[in-house]
Protein backbone atom coordinates (compact mmCIF):
# COMPACT_ATOMS: atom_id res chain seq x y z
CA UNK A 1 0.00 0.00 0.00
CA UNK A 2 0.94 3.67 0.04
CA UNK A 3 4.04 4.65 2.02
CA UNK A 4 5.02 7.95 3.59
CA UNK A 5 7.56 8.29 0.80
CA UNK A 6 4.78 7.95 -1.84
CA UNK A 7 2.78 10.61 -0.02
CA UNK A 8 5.72 12.99 0.03
CA UNK A 9 6.23 12.35 -3.68
CA UNK A 10 2.52 13.04 -4.41
CA UNK A 11 2.86 16.21 -2.29
CA UNK A 12 5.81 17.40 -4.32
CA UNK A 13 3.95 16.67 -7.59
CA UNK A 14 1.03 18.65 -6.12
CA UNK A 15 3.37 21.52 -5.15
CA UNK A 16 2.35 21.29 -1.50
CA UNK A 17 5.01 21.54 1.17
CA UNK A 18 4.23 18.87 3.74
CA UNK A 19 5.81 18.73 7.17
CA UNK A 20 6.62 15.34 8.72
CA UNK A 21 3.87 15.86 11.31
CA UNK A 22 1.37 16.31 8.48
CA UNK A 23 2.65 13.48 6.31
CA UNK A 24 1.97 10.76 8.88
CA UNK A 25 -1.80 11.24 9.37
CA UNK A 26 -2.23 11.98 5.65
CA UNK A 27 -0.56 8.68 4.80
CA UNK A 28 -3.02 6.91 7.08
CA UNK A 29 -5.98 8.73 5.51
CA UNK A 30 -4.87 7.94 1.97
CA UNK A 31 -4.20 4.34 2.91
CA UNK A 32 -7.80 3.98 4.15
CA UNK A 33 -9.22 5.61 1.02
CA UNK A 34 -7.09 3.52 -1.34
CA UNK A 35 -8.13 0.41 0.53
CA UNK A 36 -11.78 1.40 0.04
CA UNK A 37 -11.43 2.08 -3.71
CA UNK A 38 -9.69 -1.28 -4.12
CA UNK A 39 -13.18 -2.73 -4.75
CA UNK A 40 -13.03 -1.31 -8.29
CA UNK A 41 -10.45 -4.01 -9.10
CA UNK A 42 -13.13 -6.70 -8.68
CA UNK A 43 -14.96 -5.72 -11.88
CA UNK A 44 -14.03 -6.95 -15.33
CA UNK A 45 -13.75 -3.77 -17.42
CA UNK A 46 -11.65 -5.20 -20.25
CA UNK A 47 -14.43 -4.59 -22.80
CA UNK A 48 -15.73 -1.29 -21.39
CA UNK A 49 -15.06 2.15 -22.89
CA UNK A 50 -14.19 4.91 -20.39
CA UNK A 51 -16.63 7.79 -19.76
CA UNK A 52 -14.77 11.03 -19.11
CA UNK A 53 -17.74 13.21 -19.96
CA UNK A 54 -21.47 12.46 -20.09
CA UNK A 55 -22.67 14.68 -22.93
CA UNK A 56 -22.30 13.79 -26.61
CA UNK A 57 -20.87 17.23 -27.42
CA UNK A 58 -17.31 17.77 -28.57
CA UNK A 59 -15.10 20.28 -30.37
CA UNK A 60 -17.03 23.32 -29.23
CA UNK A 61 -15.66 26.34 -31.07
CA UNK A 62 -16.76 29.92 -31.15
CA UNK A 63 -16.76 32.20 -34.13
CA UNK A 64 -13.31 33.61 -34.79
CA UNK A 65 -14.01 37.25 -34.08
CA UNK A 66 -12.57 39.78 -31.69
CA UNK A 67 -14.62 40.30 -28.54
CA UNK A 68 -14.15 42.57 -25.58
CA UNK A 69 -12.13 41.18 -22.69
CA UNK A 70 -10.71 42.37 -19.39
CA UNK A 71 -8.23 45.22 -19.69
CA UNK A 72 -4.73 44.74 -18.32
CA UNK A 73 -5.57 47.18 -15.57
CA UNK A 74 -8.74 45.30 -14.54
CA UNK A 75 -6.98 41.94 -14.59
CA UNK A 76 -4.12 43.24 -12.44
CA UNK A 77 -6.36 45.00 -9.95
CA UNK A 78 -6.40 41.86 -7.78
CA UNK A 79 -2.73 40.92 -8.29
CA UNK A 80 -0.79 39.98 -5.15
CA UNK A 81 2.20 41.94 -6.42
CA UNK A 82 2.65 43.68 -9.75
CA UNK A 83 5.37 45.47 -11.63
CA UNK A 84 5.16 47.41 -14.92
CA UNK A 85 1.84 45.88 -15.99
CA UNK A 86 2.82 42.30 -15.06
CA UNK A 87 2.50 39.95 -12.11
CA UNK A 88 5.58 40.04 -9.92
CA UNK A 89 6.83 36.69 -8.58
CA UNK A 90 9.92 35.49 -6.71
CA UNK A 91 13.02 34.66 -8.74
CA UNK A 92 12.46 31.80 -11.20
CA UNK A 93 16.10 31.25 -12.24
CA UNK A 94 18.89 31.81 -9.76
Amino acid sequence: MISEKDVKYAASLSRIHLSDEEAKPLTKDLEKILHYVEKLQKLDVSKVEPTSHVLPIKNVYREDKVRSSLSQEEALKIAVEKIKGSYKVPKVIE
Binding site: I2, D6, V7, Y9, A10, A11, L13, S14, I16, L18, E22, L26, D29, L30, I33, L34
Partner: peptide, 15 residues
Protein backbone atom coordinates in the same frame (compact mmCIF):
# COMPACT_ATOMS: atom_id res chain seq x y z
CA UNK B 1 -6.51 19.12 5.48
CA UNK B 2 -9.37 17.75 3.35
CA UNK B 3 -8.29 19.84 0.35
CA UNK B 4 -4.74 18.49 0.68
CA UNK B 5 -6.08 14.96 1.07
CA UNK B 6 -8.09 15.22 -2.14
CA UNK B 7 -5.49 17.02 -4.22
CA UNK B 8 -2.91 14.40 -3.27
CA UNK B 9 -5.26 11.45 -3.84
CA UNK B 10 -6.10 12.85 -7.29
CA UNK B 11 -2.46 13.49 -8.11
CA UNK B 12 -1.57 9.96 -7.00
CA UNK B 13 -4.38 8.41 -9.12
CA UNK B 14 -3.14 10.32 -12.17
CA UNK B 15 0.56 9.71 -11.61
Amino acid sequence: REAKRRIMLGTYALS
